[in-house]
Structure formats: C-alpha cells, structure tokens
Write a protein that binds this DNA or RNA. Sequence first.
DNA 1: GAATGTTTAAAACACTCGTTTTTTAGGAGC
DNA 2: GCTCCTAAAAAACGAGTGTTTTAAACATTC
Lengths: 222, 222
Amino acid sequence: MAQSDTVTRILDTAEVLFAERGFAETSLRNITSKARVNLAAVNYHFGSKKALIQAVFSRYLDPFTQRFHTALDTLEGRYEGQVIPLEELLETMATTVLAVPAERNSLKVFMRLLGLAYSQAQGHLRRFIQDEYGDVFTRFTELVRQATPDIPDAERFWRLHFMLGTVIFTLSGLDALRDIAEKDYQEQVSVRDLVRRLRPVVVAAMNAPLPANVDEEKYANA
Amino acid sequence: MAQSDTVTRILDTAEVLFAERGFAETSLRNITSKARVNLAAVNYHFGSKKALIQAVFSRYLDPFTQRFHTALDTLEGRYEGQVIPLEELLETMATTVLAVPAERNSLKVFMRLLGLAYSQAQGHLRRFIQDEYGDVFTRFTELVRQATPDIPDAERFWRLHFMLGTVIFTLSGLDALRDIAEKDYQEQVSVRDLVRRLRPVVVAAMNAPLPANVDEEKYANA
DNA sequence: GAATGTTTAAAACACTCGTTTTTTAGGAGC
DNA sequence: GCTCCTAAAAAACGAGTGTTTTAAACATTC
C-alpha cells in the first residue's frame, strides 16, 4: 500500500469536508486529522491549501470534461454536419453529469463543489476553472447557438446562465431541499429524479418567448 | 451626531464586505477598520459576529417582507376571492424585489447576501431566515398553488425552487456574469434588464409540460 | 550495506481570529 | 459638586489558522 495513498486519503477527505462546510470553514487540521494523516502532508504534497482545493476540482473536472468532449464528438459524428437539436445537447450534458459517480464518489459532492466555486466571492477558483476547463463549455455553447438560431446571442447567453443557476443551485443545495420536500410530500428524491424533472423545465425556459419591450437596437448588431 | 451612528456605520460597511467576500472571509477587524470604528463596538452593540450577520439580513428583510405582504394584500383585494394569475404573482414579486433599493442601498448587495445565505453551508443563517421570514414565502407559494392547480404539488415545489435558483444565482453572481456579457456583447445590463429577461423564462419554466416517465402513484396522493 | 532521495512525524513559527476586560470619555439627572 | 449610565477606545486573551522547519523512518539504487 502506502505509495502515495496519503494523497488519495487527503483528497477523499478534503472533498467531503469542503462540500459540507465550505473552503474557509474547513481547516487543514480538520482534513488531516480525519484522514489520519500528518498535518504537514498537505503542504508537502500539494504546496498550499489553495492548491489542494484546485486539486480536488481537477480530480472531478478532468475526467468530466474529457468524457463530455468525447460525448460531443460522437454526437457530432452522428449528425455529421447537421444541426444538433437542443434537446439532444441538453440530454448529452445531463448524461455526462450523471456519469460522474462512475469515476468519483459522489455526484452530490461534485455539484456542491461547483456551487461553492461560483458563490465563493474570491475569483481565484472561478478563474482557475474558467482557464482550465472553459474550452468544453465554449464548445457546448457554440453548439447551442447553432441549435437555437432564432435567439439573439445576448439573450441566449443569459438564458444559458439562468439554467446553469437552476441546475447548480438545485443540485448543490440538494440536501436542504430534499429535507423540506420529503417532509412535505413524503417523497424520495434522487439526483436522477431531479434531472428528469429539470429536463422539460430547461427546454421550456430556453424556448420561452423573447422578453417584451426590448430596445430594438440592442439586438440589431448581435 | 454620535448617538449610535456607529451601529449604522458598522452595518453599512459589513453588508458590503460580506457581499464582496463572504462571511468567514470578512473579519471584524476588516469591518471596524474600514468603518473607522473601534473593534469592540461590534461585540458591544450586536453581541457577536453571528448576531451582526443576522442584523444585516434583518435590515434588508424586515422592510422587504413587510412590503411584500402589503403588495399581496392589495393584489388579493383586487381579485377579491378570485384566483390570481401566475403572471400577476410573479410580477408582484419582481416589483417588490426591485423596490429594495428604495429602502436600502443596493439590490446587488441584497441578492448577493441571499445567495450567500443559501450556499453557505452552516445552517444557522438559513434557519434564521426561515424562522423569521418564512411566513411570507409560505403565503406566496400557497397563492402560486391556487394559480397553477394542474401542477402536482411536488412538481410545483421543485419548479419554484428551480426558479429561485435561477434568480438568486444570476442576480447574486451578477458582477462576474456582467463582465463576461459586456465583453462579448458590448451590452450594458442592469438588474432591471435582467428581471425583464427573467420574466418570460420563469413563466415558461413554470408552465413547462410535466416530465415524462413519471411514476404515476407518486402524484396520486399529492 | 552504506548512501540517497522520498515520505511521514513532531514541533515550532508567525499570524489572525472573535471575544473579553480594562480604561477613558461624555453627558443626564439631582 | 457628584454619581450613574452609556458609549468608545485600547489592550490583552486564548484559541485556531496556514505554513515552515527539523527529525525520524522508509524505500531504492548503486
């Protein structure tokens, strides 16, 4: 054993604690003691706490983006030049997201980390994610653009982020919401259930009529 | 002067710093030094940092919920017993949200604080908000229920939270998104603009077709 | 098998944190 | 005058933080 299963133990423990309590609220001593690892090991293996945080993200995002790229590859191959329908694109994204637990532990942790990364005020994490993994998102939005030619660019930009907010907010705050929902509706909700519920909502939101009273020239050169 | 404009200065400074960097990342020394106030003043006037955080929220939420309640009063009065259409309800909520800057400084700060309250893992804030201000939200959802009788209860619950996620995520992360949007689309976006864009999206999302492959009995007793 | 490089362990460092205590100031009431 | 109470200021406290340093153990290679 040994080798560097210390690194793995640190990452495994850190991602759970980060997801539960946030980055600032999780100390290195929390992590190392729970992982039964020496305190200095974090700085030895990762260099700093900030680097550890990024490593946690990389371990999720590296396989995710890779998988997403290949999924888009096969999708493009299937439609060979033709425009890919919006539903297909969303479906592919959903499938890729749901496939995360196959590689890493928990989809819940993944979504919670994403939510933290966006809400965390300090830009370092968002910048890191944008720089390292922005490509696949750019590729995806371009395909969405082709699938929805009637939506002005700015409007599509905002709607995509509306939907990003819906998904991240819901799935990252899932535990709290699940408690309320199960209390009121005696219903077990899994992430798969939520994704199934999200599908028609996202499609309808993207296809919603354009807002009224739009200043025309704003879209003239878009 | 004097009196207790110290309290106001602390609150004014704290809400901005909290909104910018989060609660854990903002120290009392940050606040008191920027507010040109003695460090001990926070504990003297508020008792603790946690109490200060709640005071910041109360200063926003007290007038907001009050305003929202009276807005719903007049709306119910106008429809005297009849069912209020969903669009009217959403419109009222949007108007009330947009009216926040009349009482307090910044709508941006308000939304950012709300976003933090939800993403912040520690439950004390969410519990505080739920306990103190849950009534008006319950009232609102009940009106939405009457306006959308065809949506199963559980489904409506989730869709409302989907939309909550959309609004909070977008408006609380507005600065970052605005940067990207303006760079790509040379377009100035105000909060009013965003609310205008959000309107049709939220309506379409609420009215989206029900998800397919639903286990029927889940809705049988809802 | 001694030497080398890598990983772990323990301790210390230099701060920062929220909170508390002590001290000083400023009016109000009589 | 003096006290009483509230507010502000200064200083100190104790705990907790990320990081660094120093020592020991381990594994590998020649």
